[in-house]
Amino acid sequence: MNDMRLTERAVTQTAKITARGVQVHYGTNHALKDVDVDILDKTVTAFIGPSGCGKSTFLRCLNRMNDTVASARVTGKIEMDGQDIYDPRVDPVQLRAKVGMVFQKPNPFPKSIYDNVAYGPKIHGLARGKAELDQIVETSLKKAALWNEVKDRLSAPGTGLSGGQQQRLCIARAVATSPEVLLMDEPCSALDPIATAQVEELIDELRAQFSVVIVTHSMQQAARVSQRTAFFHLGHLVEYGETGHIFTNPTDPRTEAYITGRIG
């Protein structure tokens, strides 16, 4: 299987996001130290590492979600398509429209399924009319593999769905704004194995259109869904490379220790 991945890997080469020397402080806590990463287009990149290692922190830097935390301070340079996203002239609102996010716990809004998905297109003005909006909702739900389950009850509240359905709804909601990058912060940690399998399958399909970054604490999951893997430990990016390479032949002893279960 790893061999298969190695052949696939050859097609994706352009860097979508480049990060250089990224540091994050929460108050006095130095949460992320000097991280350099290139995230490739149309690829699933997994961030792994023990809890508190800074993988989620780095993820939240990529769409400037850390701006909503008053004590957070981000330094260094992160560029998307060559544009510095921390340039003071950049509007984080526009950035987040291009870099969608799915969270650890499914967080559907207390609105109907339809309104949940239509929320992003509505605020960004992506649809010119009701028909077009319906179209966006339908394609997004289809992309999230949820359409068949909910097409008859689009006006039912999103909070009434099962956990796995809720998370796929959140993915549909993120996909609806047509982002270029999709960030997923442990999207399966609150789900049962069946729902997890559905979401993982979905992630693999999404790779065709988006560059997907997924944070996970499950190494098996990283191995299953990602083409490239970054291992974080205590705020440092320890190792970054092809998933097969990281799991079979890590260069750093810490990576090996984590993968073999000695730290974690």
Binding site: M80, D87, V90, D91, A97, I136, S178, F210
Partner: peptide, 14 residues
């Protein structure tokens, strides 16, 4: 990258 996207707007010039 997608038919609905408000294509290619610069991040800096809103």
């Amino acid at each position: 990258s997608s038919p609905h996207h408000r294509g290619g707007a610069s991040l800096i010039a809103p």
